[in-house]
Amino acid sequence: MNGFFKRKWMMHFCFWLVYSFYFFVVNALGNSRLSLKASLVTVFYCAFIFYTVYLILMYVFDKGHILGTVLLMGGFYLLSGFLVYYELYGRFGMEIINSRYVITKHAFSWAKYIQTFFVMHSNYTDMAVGYYYYKSKLRESNDKLEAVKARLDAESSMKSFQYTTLSAQVHPHMMANIFSYLKNKVDPYDRKLGMQLAEIYRLMKFYMEAHQVDGATHILLADEVTALEQYLSIQEKVEPNPFYINLSYSGNLMRFSTAPTLLQTLAGNLFKHADLWDKDHPAKIDILVGHAGYRITVQNKKRSGPQIMPSHDVGLRNIRTRMEYLFGADFSMVEHQDADHYRLTLCVQRYR
């Protein structure tokens, strides 16, 4: 970045240096007394006019401050008018210009003064306006190119994610077909086991649909609760010892949506870190739906002794990220814990 600005200002410096020699040669043809030093001083002041006008346009006019632009331009031209007067006609005028470049006598002339003022300011103001317009169009073109590039990158990433997701679902689809086949074979001999296989199949299908790249980002809270009940039902058959998780919900679950697999992630954390085998202190998942939103509360007794599976908070970070993506500032998540108990509260309030 520093190298870029150095090259940029070096190009400007070289331009004005070359322009100074061009200015000297052109004007010396009509005024043999014009010196190179006088030419350099004149071009320096012209460059000052150019950059002052350009900076006002870039930092004030570009932000839509029309009145500020007019006031700054007017103030600059007024100040510059005094400088030009004292430079050419004042008692402190420089000898290299007086009687050698613009005028041959020191007598003041409004016509010559106005001519000099407009010649010095109008041309370089026009140059500044043209340069500002060129830079604005260049920035606009660069912004459009960046937007197109970002869109192409996003589409490329989307295709990559979609390919990865579809590839990852080859195995779940195969397993789902296997479960369906096993259910049909087992049903005539063990109806209960066949129902369990059907629940596993439905839950696996729910996970596959939830992780489709182009799938729904929201699902009804009622559907998520149903999937959680299926998950807990399957876990009852899988876990070697009985566990105790009380799931309760109240209100109209059809009114609001949530992120897919949200409740299963919370339940999975319970199986990893909570003491689920104390009948007197069961873990709880409470869902309360109100008029403006809903609240999900998970509370449990901590597992004593060393943790079998260390906590990395990946699941909770995933929940927070997805819910903030869906609901923004309407979502909040708060944790409370002590040495023996843990409590997590997720809240979605759509109207504050």
Rank of each mutant, 00 (worst) to 15 (best):
V53I: 15
Q162S: 06
I56G: 10
Y124A: 01
I285F: 02
N246D: 13
F13V: 10
R303W: 00
L36D: 01
K284Q: 11
S122K: 05
F92Y: 11
R317S: 10
A150M: 10
I178T: 12
T125Q: 05
K144M: 10
H291E: 11
Y59L: 06
L17P: 00
T165K: 08
K237I: 10
A111S: 08
F15N: 07
M120S: 14
K137R: 10
M127E: 00
S157F: 14
G75H: 10
M58A: 15
L138M: 06
M174L: 13
G268Y: 05
K192Q: 10
Q337A: 10
V238Y: 13
K63T: 07
L270A: 07
F76V: 11
I200S: 13
G194F: 07
G68E: 09
S304G: 14
V170A: 13
W277S: 13
C347Y: 04
S39E: 11
L17C: 08
L266F: 05
D126Y: 06
G74R: 09
E140A: 14
S233C: 12
V26Y: 14
D190E: 13
C347D: 13
L72D: 07
Y134M: 11
E155A: 11
R320H: 11
T261C: 04
E155I: 03
Q169H: 15
H291Y: 10
E199P: 02
K237Q: 15
Y249Q: 08
S136V: 08
N123G: 02
F24N: 14
H106E: 06
M1I: 15
M254R: 14
N300A: 08
H121R: 04
T261V: 06
L220G: 08
F13Y: 05
N31Y: 08
L276Q: 06
K284P: 00
D190V: 00
R317E: 15
N269A: 04
S122R: 02
Q307W: 04
N31E: 08
S99Q: 07
E146W: 05
E87R: 13
H171M: 14
T116M: 02
T321G: 04
N142D: 07
V225G: 02
P242F: 12
T125G: 05
V70F: 14
A216W: 00
A339K: 09
L67N: 06
I285K: 05
S122V: 14
V298R: 05
K112D: 10
S80E: 04
F271S: 11
V289K: 03
K144V: 11
K63A: 09
S157T: 09
Y45I: 15
